[in-house]
């Protein structure tokens, strides 16, 4: 076959260019260790998500010093959990799956970007150095309100980040001759022990106690007050631990049943 001199030169230059591109990208993958979404995640049938230990309760979990895992679920047209709060400068691994159609999980303006396919679990590990609020959106068309599918990713300074939760148990109504028990429970989702000052207030009574909560444990503090001391009527209570606060009202009334209801966690 006759090939013109210039054609040979061009052919050679083209091959050099192509091999150069492949080498650059291979270096990125092997040398710099830029990892990709792949098949390391397990599979999960969408109708088993609710029973699943990880995705049944979408959340952030600490798994090591400066290592976190996020179990997130995408569905028409929202992400769970929302917002997702993670600490800066830590290694965070997102596990994402879909309840229904194909979605994506894209942290706007970054390369944290993966498709989310029902039946599969996408695994992405990232480290955010810059604290801030990032947009989290779905970039795969998933139905008529696709453009409303938006979540928040909050990257917090290490000091501001915790996985502490406060839960309060208090009665709604108490007989005038009964006792009011308010129990505040502090749960530490992180691995290191934390010190918290727990304060519970009801009427003029205040209980303040310092507790040490071990990693992955909870501690409770209970304030007990005689209803008679407060008198009939509505009485407000507050419980706080660190910057978490819960509040509610207990009524002292004749003829009530003493049913208890927990306040929300923070």
């Amino acid at each position: 076959m006759r090939i013109h001199q210039y054609e040979r030169v061009w052919l050679l230059a083209s091959m050099v260019l192509i091999v150069g591109f492949i080498a650059t990208i291979t270096y990125g993958a092997v040398g710099l260790g830029i990892t990709m979404v792949d098949d390391r995640g397990a599979t999960i049938a969408p109708d088993e998500i609710n029973e699943d230990e990880r995705f049944g309760d979408p959340r952030v979990e600490q798994v090591g010093d400066d290592e976190y895992e996020v179990y997130a679920v995408a569905m028409t047209f929202a992400f769970q959990p929302d917002p997702i709060e993670i600490p800066a400068d830590s290694e965070v691994t997102f596990y994402v799956t879909s309840r229904d159609v194909i979605h994506s999980f894209y942290v706007v303006g970054t390369n944290t970007n993966t498709m989310v396919i029902p039946g599969e679990i996408s695994v992405v590990t990232v480290e955010f150095d810059e604290p801030g609020e990032y947009g989290l959106i779905c970039t795969e068309y998933c139905g008529a309100a696709h453009h409303e599918m938006e979540g928040q990713l909050a990257v917090l300074e290490d000091e501001e980040f915790d996985l502490t939760e406060l839960e309060v148990e208090a009665p709604d109504e108490v007989e005038p001759d009964g006792e009011i028990e308010i129990t505040a429970t502090v749960t530490n989702g992180q691995l290191e022990a934390i010190e918290e000052t727990v304060t519970v207030e009801l009427g003029d009574e205040t209980l303040e106690e310092s507790v040490t909560v071990e990693g992955d444990e909870s501690e409770s503090v209970t304030l007990t007050v005689d209803a008679a001391d407060l008198g009939e009527g509505d009485h407000d209570w507050t419980a706080s631990a660190g910057d978490l606060t819960e509040s509610g009202t207990v009524s002292v009334v004749e003829g009530s049943e003493d049913d208890t209801e927990g306040g929300d966690d923070a």
Partner: peptide, 23 residues
């Protein structure tokens, strides 16, 4: 490239073939 359930190796092969398709 961003799909879960497909290994990085297969993606790598597709990438090299694609680059040769530039020729």
């Amino acid at each position: 490239y961003l799909d879960p359930g497909i290994s990085e190796g297969f993606k790598f092969i597709a990438m090299t073939n694609t680059m040769f398709l530039l020729l």
